[in-house]
Design a protein around this nucleic acid. Structure first.
Lengths: 205, 205
DNA sequence: AGTCTCTTGACCGAATCGGTTATTTGTGCT
DNA sequence: AGCACAAATAACCGATTCGGTCAAGAGACT
């Protein structure tokens, strides 16, 4: 296990991304160690040399991805931003920035939540307990509602925003070549347009 | 091949859904005939009895899914509906209705568009040519733009709507138990709120 | 040259792959 | 009941791939 950590970082990243991509795309059972090795450009034997077994590799990826996600959420504290649109924007931006650095993490974590293989059930339940609490940052607050021209729109807008975020993530996952930066620009423009049209005049800027 | 068509329809649906689900989830190479047979509750030998080979089964599913998608789009002619929001709403509703009847089709078709296996490359290019033309129903028209309070918002709103549709589809795919009808209600509500806030007063209702 | 670390091609038995065949099972007919 | 026929499958095929091992090679340093 410590064999892997003494590799040069660039190689580590290549291997990790290959593994995240394979597990994320196929799930634990269908992703073979050979797939990962070929995609990473190394031999299958090396993978076992670095991680010991397929399950140990998967466990390593779980803690690796979990740490990145959790720390990225921790550094942006959502309590500071009081406005609904600011919160969703900040949330999306941090998620996009994290995704840009390591594009295979979201796919991997998404698949981990629906993973059913018996062989990794134990380590998955542990993982889910640790990371499950990080989903509470988008609740609608009382002081958000009053800013809307029509307060009934508040909840609807929140649904729109969450759908957009989901579609945004799906979009990023499918088109590998799209630039994240330009996409986030567009996303910011959409958020701005929504705020401009839904909020009362007095709350604009 | 005609062996399969003489089965009782319920059994056909079970088998088709199992196959669509497996191919959609794993892709052609990683989805095994045994997976499909087990999921459908029949023996692997029967699958070969019905379809001849794995590739023939995949080809059958392609035409099956293609026919359903295309006919569902044909029956709702988008040229009639001249308003942008009406068009996106109608498009989403027909898609949702089709998806409700056969929940595994969208996943399957989505995976077919990113399928890379050599063994089915020939039939896939054929399929893509046939169905590719059915994606043109969401272009922004000149008479749409003038209805906006701020015409510059038109393109932004279109992006929002497409992101929503993508997130909507992703959402339906992940949560199998969510009711489509209630979700489409919410979706309708979101569309209505968008129109109400972005359009000039004169174009409301 | 020697030695030490890292990497890998070749290999292992077991499992699974797509596909076939022979046997069982179910069903209608008399 | 017994028979005949069709539908479904258990058992099997050779080939490939699985997770995992190991000894031989490729460099780097002394």
């Amino acid at each position: 296990m410590n064999k892997f950590l003494s590799l040069k970082e660039e190689k580590q990243v290549t291997i990790i991304n290959a593994a995240l991509g394979c597990f994320g795309k196929y799930g634990y059972a269908k992703a073979s160690v050979n797939d990962i090795a070929v995609l990473a450009g190394i031999s299958k034997a090396s993978v076992f040399q670095y991680f010991g077994s397929k399950k140990q590799l998967y466990a390593y990826l779980l803690t690796y991805a979990g740490d990145i996600i959790m720390s990225s959420f921790r550094q942006a504290d959502f309590d500071e931003k009081t406005d609904l649109f600011d919160r969703i924007l900040l949330s999306s931006l941090t998620e996009a920035k994290t995704l840009e650095k390591n594009p295979y993490i979201s796919q991997f974590i998404l698949s981990a939540w629906t993973e059913t293989s018996d062989e990794v059930r134990d380590i998955l339940t542990e993982f889910k307990n640790e990371t499950g609490k990080f989903r509470n940052h988008l609740i609608l607050r009382k002081d958000d509602v009053s800013k809307f021209k029509n307060p009934n729109d508040a909840e609807t807008v929140l649904q729109i925003l969450m759908l957009m975020a989901e579609g945004y993530a799906a979009h990023c996952r499918n088109d590998e070549k799209t630039m994240y930066s330009s996409l986030t620009d567009d996303f910011q423009k959409m958020i701005a347009a929504m705020r401009r049209n839904f909020y009362k005049e007095e709350y604009l800027l």
